[in-house]
């Protein structure tokens, strides 16, 4: 299971102008010159207060540092993840995990970087300029137009593991994961369904309780 590393924003928060404003953020980040030249980015956000997910994290603020992709590219891929697998109950932090995993692939392989950059450019073209800012309908059409391409396959394939195999997704979908640490479900509701008639004792004998 992958857990998002939640970085307290602290000193970063003040300098967070975001890409949307068009201003170049001047962040006091420990970035090397080489990383800057490669266009590293940062994705950040805040988990909704009081949500089950915020209880999982040490801080409601989250940040994902990208090594190869830029913030703009990361944002586009996050949006693409939401078009592919739209879940209102999943916060952006989960979609940021997708970008984190794609970025890791890009960092270890230049071909992947090119695949992702070209794909994002195609998304922008298909949505009339800026995919991330396009309407939901245009975003959906743009993603659909790329179905069957290696870029689409790479992002969609990564979604399957990045979006659905982490603590936040488990909490959002109501899946508790491993149960043996709690003694399984033998005394914790494995047969607590009450909205249908009970099977006979022949069909389903009572559990052995010693």
């Amino acid at each position: 299971m992958k857990v998002i590393p939640i970085t307290p924003l602290g000193h970063l928060a003040a300098g967070n102008c975001g890409e949307d404003s068009g201003e170049v953020p001047k962040l006091d980040l420990p970035l090397t010159r080489r990383n800057l030249l490669r266009g590293s980015g940062l994705l950040m956000g805040t988990l909704a207060a009081g949500s089950a997910l915020s209880l999982l994290a040490p801080s409601r603020a989250w940040a994902v540092e990208l090594k190869t992709l830029s913030s703009t590219e990361g944002t586009a891929l996050m949006k693409m993840g939401r078009v592919l697998y739209p879940h209102s109950k999943l916060p952006d932090a989960v979609y940021a995990l997708l970008v984190k995993d794609l970025d890791a692939g890009a960092t270890s392989d230049a071909k992947t970087t090119a695949l992702l950059r070209d794909g994002i450019a195609s998304l922008d073209r298909a949505s009339g300029g800026n995919f991330a800012k396009a309407t939901a309908a245009r975003q959906l059409a743009a993603v659909k137009s790329l179905e069957g391409t290696p870029f689409f396959a790479a992002v969609r394939g990564k979604c399957v593991t990045s979006l659905y195999d982490n603590d936040m997704a488990f909490a959002a979908f109501g899946y508790p994961g491993s149960s043996w640490e709690k003694g399984g479900y033998i005394t914790r509701g494995f047969q607590d369904l009450k909205w249908l008639s009970e099977p006979s004792k022949e069909a389903s004998p009572a559990p052995w309780m010693g």
Binding site: Y185, F190, Q191, D192, L193, L196, S197, E198, P199, E202, A203, S204, P205, A206, P207
Partner: peptide, 24 residues
């Protein structure tokens, strides 16, 4: 036999309603 879980309860309820007989 093992005790049936919730997933079995759903299967059993539907199957018996449909007239299936060997359901356990």
């Amino acid at each position: 036999g093992l005790p049936g879980n919730n997933n079995f309860k759903v299967l059993h309820a539907g199957a018996t309603k449909l007239g299936y007989r060997e359901v356990h």
